[in-house]
Amino acid sequence: MNIKSYIQITRPANVITAVSDILAGVAIAVFSFSYEEVNITGVLFLCLATMGLYGGGIVFNDIFDLELDRIERPERVIPSGKISKTNAVIYGSFLLISGISAAWFNSPLSAIIAALVAACALVYDKYGKHHSFFGPINMGLCRGGNLILGMSIIERSIEQWWFIGLLPVCYIAAITMISRGEVHGGNKNTLYFAAFLYIMVSTAQLYFSYQLNNLPVAAAFVVLHIYLIFKPLLAAIANPIGPNIGKAVKAGVLSLIVMNAAWVSVSGNILLALVVLCLLPVSIWLARFFAVT
């Protein structure tokens, strides 16, 4: 068994970003509640859950893309023969089931949310990605659901703050729109609209931090996030060729960690925000060895 191939197919650098979603969700939960109400063991189970959900979703993405990848990306794990399609299906199913099971150890509600995230991922993998409008929204719902999964650490918080889960929908929709030009080049109008969605998310973070009297701290994280995503995006807008688009997508995915650190800083917990931010170099390091897109 080629262990590296099984790790590679889950995009481990991206999985780290999913863990940061959970931590951001936990921080949002304490916008109205106390960190003393947070069950640390539950947080660990939710982190394991998102790792299974994200990894399983990515595996099925490659399974459904097999025929296209034979032509456009033959170096990927399944078309190259490093993992058979049958073994990939078994592996992806195991990861998704493990993710839902881990969420159950926090609460039945967490398991239901995890199951919905898994369903959204499979719908995107099979159908959503082929739709220019609903595809990006579908992918964004996976991340939004993941954020709400983190909020389920304090279930009462979901009723108050569920709508924040719509903002990752906008952010991921932007990345998904950009990624459509990764192979053959992009469209400038699409890139401009993605930039608008990015700005909308950052503006919302600044607004909530102002409302919670944590603007000075949050602003530093938001500005860092804007810098990291807009530097490659502006280069792609200036010259929307495949390689530039790929860099913009990679920056958008890895910078999810910074966006989530910003959400934590909105809660006023600087220490946890820095802990989340420390996941970024880990993700970047993994991206040196494993594909992100």
Score class of each variant (00 low, 15 high):
131 H>Y: 12
254 L>E: 04
92 G>P: 09
115 A>T: 10
71 I>K: 10
276 V>D: 09
209 S>W: 08
189 N>V: 03
29 A>Y: 01
278 C>W: 02
225 H>W: 14
99 G>N: 07
162 W>E: 12
113 I>M: 11
52 G>S: 09
230 F>N: 14
103 A>S: 07
24 A>S: 15
6 Y>W: 10
126 K>P: 04
106 N>F: 04
289 F>E: 14
42 G>Y: 05
193 F>A: 14
209 S>C: 08
38 V>T: 07
150 G>V: 06
140 G>T: 02
17 T>E: 04
135 G>H: 04
98 S>F: 15
91 Y>Q: 05
109 L>R: 12
3 I>G: 03
263 W>C: 07
251 A>G: 10
216 P>K: 05
51 M>F: 13
102 A>F: 15
101 S>K: 08
85 K>G: 07
262 A>Y: 07
119 A>M: 12
128 G>E: 00
77 V>H: 11
194 A>M: 10
89 V>L: 09
150 G>R: 07
66 L>K: 05
260 N>R: 00
283 S>W: 09
94 F>M: 15
82 K>M: 07
239 N>M: 08
5 S>F: 05
76 R>F: 02
67 E>F: 00
230 F>H: 11
169 V>R: 06
117 V>F: 07
157 S>W: 08
277 L>G: 06
48 L>I: 11
45 F>L: 07
201 V>Q: 01
111 A>N: 11
221 F>Q: 02
76 R>Q: 00
258 V>D: 04
190 T>S: 15
265 S>P: 06
266 V>Q: 14
262 A>T: 01
247 K>G: 03
202 S>A: 14
248 A>H: 12
233 L>I: 03
105 F>M: 14
124 Y>K: 10
163 F>R: 13
67 E>R: 05
80 S>R: 13
197 L>C: 06
166 L>M: 13
108 P>E: 01
152 S>I: 05
52 G>N: 11
263 W>S: 06
76 R>C: 00
27 A>S: 15
140 G>M: 08
53 L>P: 01
71 I>R: 05
149 L>A: 13
241 I>M: 05
78 I>D: 02
5 S>W: 06
190 T>D: 14
17 T>M: 03
141 L>D: 00
48 L>R: 03
273 A>D: 10
120 C>A: 15
112 I>F: 13
36 E>T: 08
160 Q>M: 11
163 F>E: 12
17 T>R: 01
119 A>T: 15
283 S>A: 14
261 A>P: 08
68 L>C: 02
182 E>A: 11
267 S>G: 13
232 P>R: 01
228 L>T: 07
5 S>I: 00
56 G>I: 01
62 D>R: 06
8 Q>Y: 07
68 L>Y: 07
